[in-house]
């Protein structure tokens, strides 16, 4: 049963059908985001920003440190990955309408060293039973000609072959 099934008789005085519509939104990637996505598309790298004072590396790159407000400039850029470690994960077996997915999706938070922030992405080339916390994974990028400066330019992370 879909979510709207209970609300069909909108001609009754009791209720109205409405929507909070906007045609669309334009979301800004931001100064640091533009740099991150350009590097991902053109150089195939995962760019991060390192705050020396707080000893923390933000993935993706950021314009400022949220802890101390220092401006993070080009000289604070760090390249992280492509290898990282699964900090936590979940398996998704149904879509939002409740239909079974042909293959379960695996979402994971990946860390690139203990001083980095977490990075959300998908896992691939691995069966759900084999996934575990602490697993070493590596980024699989789409071919350069298919990359469009989006987070999905990384196709997924897969286990590092031993």
């Amino acid at each position: 049963m879909g979510f709207t099934d209970r609300f069909q008789k909108t001609t009754e005085p009791r209720h109205r059908l409405g929507a909070m519509e906007a045609d669309h939104y334009i979301y800004s990637a931001g100064i640091a985001g533009e740099k991150f996505f350009t590097a991902l598309r053109d150089r195939g790298i995962i760019l991060a920003s390192h705050c020396k004072a707080c000893a923390i590396t933000y993935v993706p790159s950021r314009l400022f440190c949220e802890r101390c407000f220092a401006e993070l400039t080009d000289s604070d850029d760090r390249e992280v990955g492509p290898e990282g470690e699964v900090a936590t994960f979940t398996l998704v077996r149904q879509d939002s309408a409740g239909n079974a997915l042909p293959e379960p999706e695996i979402l994971a938070v990946i860390r690139f060293g203990h001083e980095t922030t977490g990075f959300l992405h998908k896992l691939g080339e691995v069966s759900p039973e084999k996934v575990e916390t602490g697993m070493k994974v590596e980024a699989v990028l789409k071919p350069q000609e298919e990359r469009e400066a989006r987070i999905t330019d990384i196709a997924y992370f897969r286990p590092v072959k031993k």
Partner: peptide, 25 residues
């Protein structure tokens, strides 16, 4: 302002106010 995120604009204004007051976060 298409270039900056709301977060980046907020940080810019906050930094100016803190700098004027001679304070840090």
């Amino acid at each position: 302002r298409l270039q900056e995120t709301g977060k980046e604009m907020t940080w810019e204004a906050a930094k100016m106010a803190l700098d004027q007051a001679g304070l840090t976060l």
